[in-house]
Design a protein around this nucleic acid. Sequence first.
RNA 1: GCCAAUGUAGCUCAGCCUGGUAGAGCAAUUGAUUUGUAAUCAAUAGGUCAUGGGUUCAGAUCCCGUCAUUGGCUCCA
Length: 640
Amino acid sequence: MIGTFENRIFMPVLTCLNMRILQLHCDNIEYTPTKKEIKSAEDIVDLQTQRLEELVVVFVAIENGDDSSVAQNAISQIKASMEKIGCKKLLLYPYAHLSSNLAKPSTAMNLLKEMEDGASELEVSHSPFGWTKSYKIQVKGHPLAESSKVVTKDSSGLKDDNEITSDALKGESKIRSYWKILSTDGTMTNIGDFDFSKHKKLEVLAKYESAKIRKVDQPPPHVALMKKMGIADYEPASDSGNMRFYPNGRLIKSLIERYVTDRVKEYGGYEVETPIMYDSEHPSMVSYFNRFPARQYNIDSEGKKLFLRFAACFGQFLMANEYQLSYKTLPYKLYELTRYSFRREQSGELVGLRRLRAFTMPDCHAFCKDMPQAIDEIKTRFDLSQSVLKELGIDETDYDMAIRFTEDFYNENKSSIEELVKKHGRPVLVEMWKEKFFYFVLKWEFNFIDGLGKASALSTDQIDVENGKRYGIDFVDENNVKQNPIILHNSPSGAIERIIYALLEKAAKDSREGRKPQFPLWLSPTQVRIIPIKEEFDEFVEILAERISINNVRVDIDDRNESIGKRIREAEKEWIRYILVIGEKEANSQNLNIRDRQTGDVREISFDDFITEINEQTRGKPFTGLNLPKYLSKRPNLMV
RNA sequence: GCCAAUGUAGCUCAGCCUGGUAGAGCAAUUGAUUUGUAAUCAAUAGGUCAUGGGUUCAGAUCCCGUCAUUGGCUCCA
């Protein structure tokens, strides 16, 4: 799986055997018992409406398995938080709907009584047990007014629901890692001793990762650009972090997707497609969750608790399970471009295209027979990733490399690790773990550093030594013995949205530094814009556009009734590389006068030379036609 | 998720402090103009001032809640 530093455990709500409480600090509450819900309901005399003011209301669901210690635990935690908010009146409100695994009514009533007794120093009461009640409640507005909790037998007891973490994760903060810089000659230097003067971006990355130093006070420029260029935007009717892509954005994204997929297939990955949702209670998922947490979207459907995938791993592992693998067929590589993978990232983390809740991720797993084969393979994939980024328009100076491994793995594979660093050609940031904590023994990634000093990972690969076994994937080795493969998890480009983010941030930087921002030509929504000077050239222009477009070039025509100056200005604002102004002179000539945005000059060139010049720049890249009307007069403006 | 800032026409923003007729530029529409390499001219239309409450004779403006975006924290592909 890619992205192991997601630190939230999945905790199926229905399987918790703990008291669940919802605590509200209220101005007032009014409730009226209406009718008995169960036979064993509490006997009460007073059926009048009760009204209480300035109090804490605690809705309680007592679950199967709760006992006296849980009740004591709960009440002492409630008392502690009431002291914090300075409130002395408490109403315990039995509320079965917080749980679907309720305790027997008799047990519940006893525990409720026990809680009430445990708070005798407060003004405490409870609403009748087992009755249907109507109620009206006014909750206060301060931040501590509302909290929901799960109380366990454990003495540490009470935690906010979303703070529950697995043992594995609790341990994560105790991981001992050493941050170093590994140079191309194999020397390891402490970060404090390293001379960063020639490696500014690496310094940013090192500080970002190890010391958490960041300084930014403005929105990332790509957010305005993605709207202005008609690429992508927020979709208010969806959840945060789920973007809409306009025609220009879809065209760019689709071309990048196709390019990455082509490259992975060329490398030997076989493209598959797997479901986007899985049953969290399916046996193959249960143990996985306890080890590989990510916050995810959950869906309840016909009694199943489904979740949206946060990576392509499960699908490919389950599929690999169906193969009869032999050492002779390894390494075997499965690949999927997930549209989408979902991670319910914390809302405060989401910015433009940099970090999303729904994203498109190329994910290629290689199943290898042993460590030497895995190491061999990871080198090939390293080259692939470097080359893919370069061809996408992100060159080596735009990113820096981080590599993480266990101390044991380093000692046994020093030369291979150094070889990766040499391929990168510059010093890299190292995180070395004293012991294996995650499912992998090595992970490297390329981090794009944007103009504001923000680092985000693009390409990555990992050597996974656990999931083969966990998923029961096996192959037969040379000695006819079943073994579990070592699995590599590679994304050669990282998330596609993040590539677009990187390209836009690069463009913004160019613009800031006085250069003209530009997409790589093969990704430009319009590659050539034709501007006829007068209507009388319309027919000539139509034919010219056709001649250009059959050579796999995206060409459009600005036939609007606007001045030449204005139309050129707008083409420039769309970052269109080539502009052809067509008038008398051109209509009577074999040559074209092209305005080249890269130089800003107008030059005369023959038709064939022009096509050749374009095709040379787009060679080896996928092509698709215009994704907007050919005539600008037919094109509504997108004002975002 | 926590802390903070922001939310006014399709877009960018002014007005808010000090409550009393909703404002500009760009875009759109219509008309004129037929243009030679980064903005032709004129007219018209366009707004429950994010949203829900509160205070007030009166709320875009003051107060509170909610939602969204952005920054920081935490986190990371």
